[in-house]
């Protein structure tokens, strides 16, 4: 178990380092922040001062080594735009995204697993039809469109919900609902397919021969067996949300890490971009470990 964790940590560290290198140099390709932050008519001296202040006067390779040296001390540098430590800016935004992702995935998983299991138990029945409908919506409705339509209908038209921001519970309803759609349709399909296999398995026959009713058969015997492929997809979808649901966060003015990343790229705020990428990468690493542990918890045949 510990060896497994250590192995995973090492392999993740390697990918993280490669990621830092790639993002560091790629972000520099977007141009010089000096041009963006200083007025067009700024003096050469002012430009020079700005460069020295942010270390942009050094050769790129020196900048990179400096960055790495600071990184070892968990210093991600300062945001040019906000004049605050980049890590602070990012963790603030990430906390919002994490909440959004957790709430959405909890609702999605609960709903998809329940509905998918019921759909598989009675193929062609009412639950199966609802499931098919949602899968189709999830696969075909683009979230930016749904988001805009939702704002138009519920905020502008009916005036029930706020259009953007995070103040109250009401602010969460639209973003969560829009983010809900795609993973719900996807996970629903996987649950349904996996449950059909599990319900047709010999051990379910044994359970029925023991006198188990439909509820025990579905939720006790089949579901736990059917969960492995479902977990994979849940992890996948959660990763997408943790990376920041850029479009949805932007539309709803949600101060999450996705919106922060887009803004920082446009603002050539390199430290923030790098910090944001590393924080989300770390979060995904932790989540993958949790998924692996969940595998082992669900299936006793899996041991690390």
């Amino acid at each position: 178990m510990q060896r497994f964790l250590a192995k995973r940590a090492v392999s993740s560290a390697v990918s993280l380092i490669l990621l830092v290198i790639a993002v560091f140099f790629l972000s520099r390709l977007t141009g010089d922040p000096t041009d963006l932050y200083l007025p067009v008519d700024a003096s050469a001296e002012a430009r020079e001062n700005f460069r020295v202040l942010h270390g942009l006067d050094q050769p790129l390779i020196w900048q990179f080594l400096d960055y790495l040296r600071d990184l070892v001390r968990l210093d991600f540098g300062d945001s040019i735009r906000r004049a605050r430590p980049a890590l602070e800016v990012v963790t603030e935004a990430f906390a919002w995204t994490l909440q959004l992702a957790l709430i959405t995935m909890a609702i999605v998983s609960g709903a998809a697993i329940t509905l998918g299991a019921l759909a598989a138990f009675n193929l062609g029945g009412i639950f199966d039809r609802i499931a098919t409908f949602f899968s189709l919506i999830g696969a075909s409705a683009p979230d930016f469109w749904v988001a805009i339509v939702a704002i138009t209908v519920f905020s502008v038209g009916l005036g029930w919900l706020p259009t953007s921001g995070t103040g109250t519970v009401w602010h969460w309803i639209l973003p969560v609902s829009v983010l809900f759609i795609r993973p719900f349709g996807l996970i629903l399909q996987v649950v349904r397919g996996s449950m059909i296999t599990a319900l047709g398995s010999p051990y379910v026959k044994t359970a029925r021969a023991k006198g188990a009713g439909p509820r025990a058969v579905i939720f006790v015997h089949a579901l736990r067996n059917a969960m492995l492929p479902v977990l994979t997809v849940i992890g996948d979808q959660a990763a997408a949300l943790l990376n920041g649901a850029v479009v949805v966060e932007t539309i709803f003015g949600f101060p999450g890490v996705g919106k922060l990343m887009i803004d920082s790229i446009l603002q050539r705020d390199f430290s923030v971009v790098l910090a944001a990428i590393m924080v989300t990468a770390f979060a995904i690493f932790v989540m993958n470990i949790l998924i692996d542990l969940a595998y082992a918890a669900l299936d006793p045949r899996i041991r690390y």
Partner: peptide, 21 residues
Amino acid sequence: RLNGRRIAMIFQDPLSHLNPV
């Protein structure tokens, strides 16, 4: 209520007929 209590069954290939989890 009869299954398992009054009438019970065992199968070929007990590995796949026992729930693995």
